Simulated assay, not measured.
Amino acid sequence: MTRQSLKQSLLLQLAVIYTRYLIGGAFVFASLIKIKGHRFTQIPDDGGHSAGHFFEMMYQSGLYWQFLGWAQLLAGLLLLTQRFAMLGAVLFFGIIANVFVITLSYPFAYTPVITGLMLLATLLLLLWDWNRLRVLLNLPVVAEQTSPLYESPLWAGVGAVLFAFTAGYRVLTDRYDFLFWLGGCVGVGAVALLVGLWRQRAGAGLAPPAVERNARAT
Rank of each mutant, 00 (worst) to 15 (best):
V191C: 08
L206C: 09
V186E: 07
P208C: 04
Y176T: 04
G203Q: 03
A192N: 04
L179A: 13
Y176H: 13
P209A: 15
V186K: 06
R175H: 14
V191Y: 09
L179T: 09
G196M: 12
R170G: 08
D177P: 05
P208Y: 05
A192Q: 03
F178A: 13
V195L: 15
G205C: 04
Q200R: 12
G168N: 01
A167M: 00
R170N: 15
A202L: 02
A207M: 10
P208W: 03
L182G: 07
A207I: 05
D177A: 12
A167W: 01
R175I: 11
V188N: 08
L179Q: 11
L193C: 14
T173Q: 11
V191Q: 07
R199I: 00
R199A: 15
R170M: 15
F180S: 11
L182Y: 13
D174A: 12
R170I: 00
G189P: 00
V188W: 04
L182T: 12
Y169E: 10
A204L: 14
P209T: 13
A204N: 10
G203S: 07
V188Q: 05
A167V: 01
W198Q: 09
G189F: 01
G184R: 06
Q200A: 08
A192P: 03
L179P: 02
G205E: 01
R170K: 15
A190K: 05
A202W: 00
Y169L: 11
P208K: 12
F180D: 08
G168L: 00
A204H: 10
A192D: 02
V186C: 14
Y176S: 07
G184Y: 05
V188L: 14
L172A: 15
R201Y: 13
L172C: 13
A207V: 13
D177H: 12
W198V: 10
F180W: 15
V171H: 06
F178M: 13
V195C: 09
L193S: 12
F180T: 14
